Amino acid sequence: MPIDEAAAFLAVRIAVLTVSDTRNLAEDRSGDTLVARIAAAGHILAERAIIRDDSDGIVARLHAWIDDPDIDCIVTTGGTGVTGRDVTPEAVERVADKMIPGFGELFRWLSFAKIGTSTVQSRACACVARGTYIFALPGSTGAVKDGWDGILATQLDSRHRPCNFVELMPRLTER
């Protein structure tokens, strides 16, 4: 996947939301992994938070960040499984204007190469909400690496060809 070295790199302002009933900031390895990759890629960590597995709470945080002009993109980690407490995809759907089904499909395809059929338990998803991208990844560090390294690193790089999410940002709210 080619990077056009002649094109300008545009840093994306990314908020990271860890969804967990059991982790705090000191124990948030998947969030730490994501933050490190964001910085290494040259992007800006706009905000970071941990929130419990509560759909209304997740939706409220997403709305606040969607409305923040200093945030271009939100990446969540956790809450994408199939248990009763896993509600991140439902929260994402509540704020979404347009779902991006190819994100979850590609994530599961990449994940299958590493964990086999266990990938069917992931409900990783993505959307656009009022001009802000939201990507929901599972909570394991391996899943965060798969999602960032395999998809987001290139799609959030303005130099990636033939196309990328960054070049679409100015047109996300067009009607």
Rank of each mutant, 00 (worst) to 15 (best):
M1L: 09
P2W: 07
I3R: 01
D4C: 01
E5Y: 08
A6V: 01
A11K: 09
V12F: 00
A15L: 02
V16S: 01
V16R: 01
V16F: 02
T22R: 03
R23I: 02
A26R: 03
A26M: 01
E27L: 10
S30L: 06
A36T: 05
I38T: 03
A39K: 08
G42R: 04
G42Y: 08
H43I: 04
A46H: 05
R48E: 10
A49V: 06
I50A: 01
R52C: 11
R52G: 14
S55H: 07
A60Y: 00
W65G: 02
W65Y: 11
I66N: 09
I66Y: 06
D67E: 15
D67G: 13
D68P: 02
P69A: 11
P69L: 05
I71D: 10
T76V: 10
T76K: 11
T76H: 09
G79P: 08
E90H: 13
A91K: 08
A91G: 10
V92L: 14
V92D: 13
R94E: 15
I100A: 10
G102R: 09
A113Y: 15
A113P: 03
T117A: 14
T117H: 13
V120M: 15
V120F: 12
R123M: 12
A124C: 13
C125T: 15
C125P: 07
C125A: 15
A126D: 12
A126R: 04
A126E: 10
A129T: 07
G131E: 07
T132H: 10
I134F: 13
F135Q: 11
L137Q: 12
L137N: 12
L137G: 10
G139T: 03
G139V: 05
G142E: 14
V144Q: 13
K145Y: 06
D146S: 14
G147A: 08
D149T: 11
L152F: 10
A153S: 12
A153K: 12
L156A: 09
S158T: 04
S158P: 03
S158D: 06
R159P: 00
H160N: 11
R161K: 09
P162K: 07
N164S: 11
V166S: 02
E167N: 04
L168M: 08
L168S: 00
P170V: 01
T173S: 05
E174V: 00
E174K: 06
